[in-house]
Amino acid sequence: MQVFPFIVVAWIIGVGLYGIATSRNLIHQIVCLIVVQSSTYVLLLGVGYVTGAVAPYFYDVPVHTPAVDPVVQALALTDVVVEAAVTALLLAIAIQAHKRFGTLDPHELAEFKG
């Protein structure tokens, strides 16, 4: 168990959130959202990592060989699928915004205030 991966996770999530908060371009903002999500991949894989273990393919290895946790890998894959759906939808909406209103700036798109 190392601390380093978790520092990386905190860094990625922080950078992503900073990007979303300061972005003036929707495409950039959506990519920042992907960055936030990427932190969860690192976290999931980091949680399941076992030092000196093999990949979880139990074929042609001696019994009782330590393997990394396959469950987190399945979770990360599911996470990728979720991300694909969300990103595709958001980018489609961003394209619509650009087509109809000629802007990708979230400040200019703001319709309701107060």
Binding site: V9, V86, I93, L109
Partner: peptide, 28 residues
């Protein structure tokens, strides 16, 4: 229309960020 585009983007980004933060908690 401008409203639905802005509303959907706001809705999607805030809720997604929330969901990913939750997922981090689940991983921990």
């Amino acid at each position: 229309e401008r409203g639905p585009i802005q509303g959907a983007l706001t809705f999607a980004i805030t809720n997604s960020v929330g969901a990913y933060v939750s997922l981090s908690g689940i991983a921990l």
